[in-house]
Amino acid sequence: MFESLLHLDGGWFDPFRRLERELDELFGPWPPPVDIHSAAWGSFPALNLGSTPDRVEVYLFTPGVDPKSLSINLQQNVLTVAGERPASAEQNATCDHRERFAGRFYRAVTLPEDVDPDQVEAQCRDGIVRISIGRREAAKPRQIEVK
């Protein structure tokens, strides 16, 4: 994070280098990594959000989660998803390193204000949950004819 600040040699700067290493250990490297393997803790499930003039589409990536165990709610324009991803434990095995998230999760995402809670559909296929939400007719632009 701070490696570019001090590139001078000498004993005078050793305490600053030690402080730099300690800050990097505490806060992590800068800029933060941005690939899927380094997502922040608690950001499961990963999601994609897109919209068209007629609908808002949300894709939740939930491998290993039973879709029937998900709790999906839409209140006003906030979509919440909660559930639990079971840990996969081998019999008589010790886990030395774990990167796959397991346990309870909760995600909330703010959607555009014109979503219609009466027009919601959810489908799951191959661990991907697709939530399609229609927009209110009153909020859609309309053509006005000039006479």
Rank of each mutant, 00 (worst) to 15 (best):
R135S: 09
D9I: 00
V58M: 08
E3W: 12
P86Y: 01
T62P: 08
R17W: 08
P53V: 00
G42D: 03
Q91G: 01
W30A: 11
E84P: 00
D24P: 00
Q91W: 09
R100V: 06
Q76K: 15
V65L: 08
Q143A: 13
V78C: 05
P33D: 04
I128W: 11
V65Y: 08
P15A: 01
R125Y: 12
R136C: 04
A40G: 00
G10N: 03
A93R: 12
H37N: 08
T110R: 15
V109M: 11
N73L: 15
I36R: 15
G83R: 08
G50D: 14
V65A: 05
V129Y: 06
R130N: 09
P29D: 11
N77F: 04
E113V: 11
W30H: 12
L111W: 10
P117F: 01
C124K: 03
R142Q: 12
G64A: 07
L26H: 11
K68F: 09
S4Q: 14
D14C: 02
P15M: 01
F13A: 15
R55M: 13
L6F: 14
R18E: 14
T80H: 04
P86T: 00
C95M: 10
V109L: 07
R136Q: 10
D14A: 12
P53Q: 01
V78K: 14
I144D: 13
S4P: 06
M1I: 10
R17C: 00
S69N: 05
A102G: 06
L74G: 02
P33N: 01
